[in-house]
Amino acid sequence: MRHANDNRAIGKISADAEITVELLERCLDRLAIAMQRAPQGGEVYLPLYERLESEIEAKKASESTMARALRRVRR
């Protein structure tokens, strides 16, 4: 079963690219597609998927904390 999103352009990811939420989200997209296409099911990728999700949440929290700190300085 293919989804319409399977063919969307994800683009190449450079080895020296800055790790951002957007980059991690792109990686998660690629991994989800690989999980769907895996011949024996995508369960083998679950730990990696969960790790990427937690990295995204940590990055978002860090960015949020930095924004709060900068707002305090600007007052």
Rank of each mutant, 00 (worst) to 15 (best):
M1W: 14
R2K: 15
R2V: 14
H3R: 14
H3G: 12
A4V: 15
A4W: 13
N5F: 13
N5L: 15
N5S: 14
D6P: 05
D6F: 09
N7G: 14
R8E: 14
A9P: 12
K12S: 10
S14E: 15
S14A: 15
A15F: 09
D16S: 14
A17P: 06
E18S: 09
V21Q: 04
E22T: 07
L23G: 01
L24F: 02
E25I: 01
R26D: 01
C27V: 05
C27D: 02
C27W: 03
L28I: 00
D29M: 04
R30M: 05
A32C: 06
A32L: 05
A34H: 04
A34N: 07
A34G: 03
A34S: 09
M35R: 09
M35W: 02
M35A: 05
Q36F: 06
R37A: 09
R37E: 09
R37F: 07
R37C: 06
P39E: 10
P39G: 06
Q40W: 11
G41S: 10
G42P: 02
V44M: 08
Y45G: 01
L46I: 10
P47G: 03
Y49V: 03
R51V: 01
L52N: 00
L52Y: 00
E53K: 15
S54W: 02
I56R: 00
I56W: 00
I56C: 00
E57P: 02
A58F: 07
K59I: 03
K60F: 03
K60E: 14
K60L: 12
K60W: 03
A61C: 05
E63T: 05
T65N: 09
A67S: 10
A67W: 06
R68Q: 11
R68K: 14
A69E: 11
L70W: 08
R71P: 03
R71N: 11
R72A: 13
R72Q: 13
V73W: 05
R74I: 09
R75Q: 10
